[in-house]
Computed example of a mutant assay.
Amino acid sequence: MKLLGALLLAAGLLGPAAQGEQHPRMDEPPRTCFFQLLSGEDSEFCRGDVEIIYPELGNVGCTYIPRCRWYRRRISREWGSPRVRYPQADKSKKYVLVLVDPDAPSRANPRNRFWRHWLVTDIPGADLRTGDVKGHVLTDYTRPTPPPRSGYHRYQLRLYEQPAHQAIALSPEERVSLGAWAMESFEKRFWLGSPVASTQFLTKYYED
């Protein structure tokens, strides 16, 4: 019942669309677009009620991005950085946001994990409460672009409390490449600990 309710709620909140194996024609009448929630181990990654919000889709946390209405294409080709909202953020603290793909180039062969898609430090808690991410950008946002025929990729957003008076920076070696990033070493180097909240969404190449 919980899953069914979530699907119906997503359909009602996010508006009508069509889902199928073919891209919808622009002159086709709108139909219901269902959003499938993650399950099992993938769903367990989502904790702490952090939201990742894209245009038209709303909060995509813990969901598969559907193919209907070209949503997979839009998230890969059109839309910029999402809003990230964390209502429980402490106004007196700052936060670190990390968005990575652990499935590069594929989940079956993730030799380039973690691919860094976004890294922002010094985010005021007050801004996170409203979904307005402002801080020190160490890695500019890059859109999720899974390679063709590589299956679903997880795009994981992790939110950390930034230790007080801690200046965080990427090493010269880390700045050279986005792929094969030693994220765990980065966490340990700056005493970030475990994320206070995390979420993820899954998508694949838009023509697959």
Results as ranks from 00 to 15, higher is better:
V60D: 03
L4G: 06
V137H: 00
K204W: 10
L4N: 03
P102Y: 02
F34M: 11
R111C: 05
D140C: 15
G5H: 08
F190P: 00
T130F: 06
W79D: 10
R154P: 05
L202W: 12
K188P: 01
S76P: 14
A126W: 04
A10Y: 02
C62D: 08
D127H: 11
R111E: 06
L4R: 13
E78D: 04
A17I: 04
K94Q: 12
P66M: 14
R154I: 04
L170Q: 02
P163Y: 06
A89H: 03
L9A: 07
A89K: 08
R149P: 00
S106T: 15
C33E: 02
A126D: 15
V84F: 05
F114V: 06
E44R: 15
P102A: 09
G135A: 03
Y86H: 04
E161D: 13
T145A: 05
D208P: 07
D42Q: 03
Y205S: 15
G48T: 12
P144A: 11
R111F: 15
K93I: 13
M183I: 08
H165D: 15
E28H: 14
Q166S: 13
N59I: 03
M1V: 03
N109K: 15
Y205A: 00
S185N: 08
D208H: 06
Q36G: 04
G15N: 07
L8E: 00
D90W: 11
R143H: 06
T145N: 09
F45A: 01
Y54G: 14
A197N: 02
D122N: 10
G40A: 06
Y64L: 08
G12Y: 14
G125M: 13
M26D: 10
Q88S: 14
Q166T: 07
Q200T: 02
T63A: 01
S194V: 09
L4H: 10
L3S: 05
E51V: 05
Y141A: 07
P147M: 06
W181V: 03
L157Y: 08
E207S: 09
Q22S: 14
H117P: 05
C46A: 13
L157I: 01
A89N: 00
R129D: 10
G135T: 03
T32Y: 12
Y54K: 07
R113K: 08
Y205D: 11
L13K: 08
A126F: 11
K94E: 14
E21L: 09
K2S: 02
F35H: 01
R189L: 03
R149K: 05
L14Q: 12
P110C: 03
M26V: 13
K93L: 14
G135E: 10
D127Y: 13
F35Q: 08
R189C: 04
G58M: 04
P29C: 01
W191F: 08
W118T: 00
L178W: 00
A6F: 08
Y205K: 15
G131H: 02
A18W: 05
L97A: 04
E187Q: 12
A126H: 01
P124D: 04
D140R: 06
R31K: 10
E78S: 04
R189T: 11
T139N: 11
R31I: 07
P24V: 08
